[in-house]
């Protein structure tokens, strides 16, 4: 529900901005780039990533399964989303995004007027290698660079590794009265 969340008073940051290249814990060279909304070409690359994604790691129904459903999910949120991609060679292997929490995305005046929902996925073969942390920090750096201030997410209460990661970068728990724990961060120079 827009406008009803509480955010930390103190901003978190600064975070690094894409593009960046780093070596993950397995010695693989990973490139991180910020792309704003997904172009047709990039959308195709991201669809390919989710086709490879193991459905046992889905969270609250996303990503959907099957190429057609994945494509229509990304298209429905795509036009106004903010995306950061992690690639290894030609393959997208990680995706972090922000989607504006508004009824009519065409009516957004300024990015800091609205709240943004965050989600992040890394394909299984690349998990536990530090890529999620890099993706998350670069998404927040990219977001701060385009004046996004308030970011929230929900995470399943039992997903302790993810909650720990979100807390490390500055997210605070705002609601946990339900199956999903809600967390929020305020971006800015601290």
């Amino acid at each position: 529900m827009p406008g009803t969340r509480t955010y930390p008073t103190e901003p978190s940051g600064p975070f690094p901005s894409p593009p960046a290249t780093f070596e993950d814990r397995e010695g693989r060279l990973i490139e991180v780039e910020g792309v704003g909304a997904l172009s047709e070409k990039r959308l195709g690359d991201v669809v390919e990533m989710y086709v490879e994604f193991d459905p046992s790691d889905r969270a609250q129904g996303i990503p959907p399964t099957g190429e057609d459903r994945i494509r229509s999910w990304l298209e429905s949120i795509g036009e106004h989303s903010v995306n950061v991609l992690a690639s290894h060679g030609d393959d997208v292997i990680g995706h972090a995004m922000l989607v504006p929490d508004v009824e009519d995305p065409d009516a957004i005046g300024a990015n800091d007027d609205v709240e943004w929902e965050l989600a992040i996925f890394v394909v299984q073969a690349y998990q536990r290698a530090g890529i999620g942390t890099e993706l998350l920090e670069h998404l927040l750096g990219y977001a701060n660079g385009i004046d996004i201030e308030r970011v929230w997410l929900t995470v399943e209460r039992w997903n302790h590794p993810a909650i720990a990661l979100y807390e490390r970068v500055g997210f605070e728990t705002t609601g946990s009265e339900s199956f999903e724990q809600e967390m929020a961060i305020r971006l800015g120079e601290s």
Binding site: A59, Q60, G61, I62, P64, W73, S76, I77, M97, V99, P100, D101, V102, E117, A119, T154, E177, S178, F179, E180
Partner: peptide, 10 residues
């Protein structure tokens, strides 16, 4: 949610 996540209320 805007992202398409299923949310169950309290």
């Amino acid at each position: 949610s805007p992202m398409g996540k299923i949310q169950l209320g309290p």
